[in-house]
Every structure is written in C-alpha cells, then in structure tokens.
Design a protein around this nucleic acid. Structure first.
Length: 472
DNA sequence: TGAAATGTTGGGGCG
DNA sequence: ACGCCCCAACATTTC
C-alpha cells in the first residue's frame, strides 16, 4: 500500500492546497502532520498573539480533517527527527509539503529535504504561498527588484488566474502514530488576556472564507479610498489568515478575477487590493534576497543613524500612553485585538521611529509579539519602510503629522474615541489634539504628548541631516 | 502610502 | 477702464 506524509506548516487549509492534493492523487493513504519546532525559527520564534492564533488554527484544521475521517497528527521537537519517526511509524515512502521562503525556514527545509532524499524518501514540494516565487522574478539586469512599482508591474503581468483546487471530500488516513493533543503545545496564554482576540477573530479556514466573503460583499467596492479609514471595516483583515495559509493569494486573485464574476467587480478597487497583495509578495521576495534585513538596515547608511535610547518612551508607546490620540488608539487596538489598521500602523511607526527616534527594531519586536498577523517578511519590510532604511522606503523626511492624519482619515474622531476611553466625550477636531485645551486635558486624565510634534519633527530632520553629512 | 514653506495665479474690491 | 493690493487656491520646492 502506498502511503505519503503531508507535512502542514503555514498552509493550514484543505482548499487549494497543492501538496495535499498531489499526495491524495498519488497515494492510497496520507498522514497529515504538524510538527511544532519554534526554536528552528529563532530569533523570530512566534510571539504570544501568533501562538494564540496557531492554537486555534490547528484546532480548526483538525476539526476539518475529522469531517473527512482523518485527523491531524501533532508532534513537537526536532523537525527532521520527527519526520523520520513519522515515516517509519506509518510506512510512508513519500512526503509532500508547500514551500516557505523565510530564510531560517527555507534553510531548515532544504537541509531536511537533503537528508530525506539521502534516505531514499521521495520529496515533493509546491508553491502555495505566493503568486510567483522569488527565483522566478528578477529585473532586466538579473538582480532582485528593490523598487515596488516595477516589481509589481512584472508580477501582475504574469499573474495566471486559475480556479483553486477543491478541498478533498474524504481523506483515506494512514494509521496514525502517537500524537500530542494540540493543548499540549501550550500555545495559549496563561493569563487570560485573549478575550479581545476571541471576540475579533475566527482562526482557521472557515473563518478565512467568511472574512473573504464579507470583504467582497461589503468593502471591496469602496476599498480604494475606504481602506485608509481606520474607523471603518473597509480592509480585508485577511492578514493573519494569509500568514498561516488558511487562505492563499491565488485563491484571492481568483475570487477577484474569475471571468464568471469579474463583471461584478470594478477594476479600480480590484487592482488596488491585488496591489496590496503585491506588497506582501514584494516583502517575501526582499527578505529572501536580503535575509539579514530582519535585524539590520537594508540601507547601510542608517547604521550611523543617531537613535535615542529611551526605555520609558518605548514603554509608553507600547502601552498607548504617548499622549498622541491616534497613535495611542492604534496601540490599544493592537493590544486588545492583536491587529491594527494599516493606516494607523504607519502613523504609529512614524511616531516611534521619527518623533521619538527609537530604533525600528524596538517597534518590530513589539509588533512581533502582539500582532496576530505577525509575519517576518511583512513586519521587516513595513518597519524598514517606515524608518526610511528599507527598499523603496518612505524618504527620511516623510514624517507623518498625527494630527493632520487623524483629521484627514478619522475626521469625526470615531476611531480615537473608541480606543481611547479617556477622550470619549471630547468633540471631533479637538479629540486629535486635546493638549490644545489644558483644562480639558486635566479633566480627562489623558497625558500630554511626550514630545512636541513640531519640535520633534525638526529634531528628526536634523538627525537625518547628520546622517547625510557623514555619508558625503 | 507627507508636511510645511515658498511661489504663482487669478478673481474681486477699491481708488 | 485700469492698476494695485489682498488673499485664497493651487502649484512647486524643500526638508
């Protein structure tokens, strides 16, 4: 009897899962396995919010497998040892997985693949994660793209739109060896801080499909401009589902570009959303080509930048007590829900790196621990973009004014008042700059800004000028 | 996927 | 009718 192992990693779905599909076509029985090995992702082991998500996503996948008379075999430890143990226990001679592109994991995978092949195991790997994998995209000179627009022009032009693979109706399961319970992985927090996450999210493939359906129905039409309004639910909020592979980018592309339904979808919002998926793609390609950038500046001129060491400032930023309403609203939304609206991420990141002049890695590490969609490529790219040290980055002088941004994108103050309770009774224009009324500030108990927006802006510009002077 | 300073333009009030 | 000034609106430049 022919048996294969399907090794699940960040592809926790049954639909459009090419590894699962290929294994089921070629073998009579398959063993679906997940191996928990966070140490192999060091120094970026999954943070607390990611672990919470992973727990629920594994539960969901196991439930979906159970409906198909299979189950998810869960192990913990050294990946290579566990895979060999699974192969021996099940009598499988083949293994299937979907490829990952994070440097540490890609290196682990190729080492595992080599030793499996050396032992005579047939290894089959697939692309389920990207429109187009990094080795297939490069500029005319054969070098990696460093600028988004030409990158996206290229990837968008060769984007093939094909129907997703259906989920298998039934899975003939191989006799499972010993499995841990998902609870045994101890992914959930001891202290019960996850109530806000539970009320916000439904991890797992069915939750991802529901989010997608709701997005297409209620938000895509206004996405192009609406995605900038943090008080509205006009973004897809699919990022954590995408990170864990509960849904893939090619499924999203199909749902937007399916010739049967395309007439229902206006071109502008459709392309605007695809473009955002393009940024996700770009981030993964960048991290693949420049693997050191998760901790180090892509633009080495920034190695000389005069950051400020200020643990108290960082602490207040993390807790949402900076005294800048839209920044604090974002940081509190993050703490409560494990997610922050992207417009507010940019504002909060600009405030931390430019006005408070804290190294972007401090922000990256905090986001890493608190975001349910924490993704090394996106997080690295986003923070380096904000700091000005990244690829196609915001120029150093592009410093957000949180008041202007608040007035423009949250004009009625709905977002700020929702997350900053102290300001719940403050009317609209003032709610973005409550320090303008000292008496009101005193009554609310809300702090004054740690630094003056205008003065700290000028200080940041001066700091960047020293960097340019050293360069020349 | 900025903001602020500076420059330019053009309509309207007015002598 | 005309030049002048004011200033808002828009454009350009600079950081």
């Amino acid at each position: 009897m022919s048996i294969a192992v399907v090794w699940f990693r960040r592809d926790l779905r049954l639909q459009d899962n090419p590894a699962l599909d290929a294994a089921l076509r070629a073998h009579e029985r398959v063993l679906c396995a997940y191996i928990h090995a966070p140490h192999e992702e060091a120094p970026w082991q999954p943070g607390a919010a990611s672990r919470w998500w992973l727990h629920h996503s594994l539960r969901s996948l196991d439930a979906d497998l159970s409906q198909r008379s299979a189950r998810l075999l869960v192990r913990r430890g050294d990946t290579q040892n566990e895979l060999f143990a699974l192969l021996h226990a099940s009598g499988a001679d083949s293994i299937y997985w979907n490829r990952l592109h994070e440097p540490a994991l890609a290196a682990r995978d190729s080492a595992v693949e080599q030793s499996l092949r050396d032992a005579g195991v047939a290894v089959h790997s697939f692309n389920a994660q990207l429109f187009c994998e990094p080795r297939r995209v490069h500029s005319g000179q054969g070098t990696p793209y460093r600028v988004f627009t030409p990158f996206w022009r290229r990837v968008r032009a060769q984007l093939e739109v094909t129907p997703p693979l259906p989920a298998p109706a039934k899975i003939a399961s191989a006799p499972a060896g010993e499995s841990l319970r998902i609870e045994d992985l101890r992914l959930l927090p001891r202290a019960g801080w996850d109530a806000g996450l539970l009320e916000t999210w439904q991890p797992g493939e069915p939750g991802a499909q529901q989010r997608l359906d709701g997005f297409l129905r209620n938000a895509l039409g206004v996405y192009k401009d609406g995605r900038d309004l943090p008080h509205q639910e006009f973004t897809s909020r699919l990022s954590p589902h995408l990170h864990f592979g509960e849904i893939g980018p090619r499924q999203l592309a199909w749902s937007l570009l399916d010739p049967q339904q395309q007439h229902e979808r206006a071109e502008a919002p459709r392309e605007a959303y695809l473009r955002e998926l393009g940024w996700r793609e770009f981030s993964q390609h960048l991290l693949h080509h420049f693997p050191h950038t998760a901790e180090r500046n892509l633009d080495i001129r920034f190695d000389a930048f005069p950051w400020t060491a200020d643990a108290a400032a960082l602490d207040r930023w993390q807790r949402g007590r900076t005294g800048v309403p839209i920044v604090d609203a974002g940081m509190r939304q993050l703490w409560h829900t494990g997610w922050m609206h992207n417009r507010v991420r940019m504002i909060a990141a600009s405030w931390l790196t430019k006005n408070l002049r804290q190294h972007w890695l401090h922000g990256a590490r905090w986001f890493w621990d608190t975001l349910v969609d924490a993704d090394l490529a996106n997080n690295t790219q986003g923070w380096q973009w904000s700091a000005g040290s990244g690829a196609d980055a915001a120029p150093y002088f592009r410093i957000f004014n949180p008041v202007t941004q608040g007035l423009r994108f949250d004009p009625d103050g709905i977002y700020v008042r929702r997350w900053v309770q102290e300001l719940a009774a403050v009317p609209a224009p003032l709610v973005h700059q409550p320090w303008r009324d000292a008496e009101l500030l005193r009554l609310t108990g809300y702090p004054a800004p740690m630094v003056d927006p205008s003065a700290s802006r000028n200080d940041a510009l001066a700091a960047y000028r020293t960097l340019r002077a050293q360069e020349s």
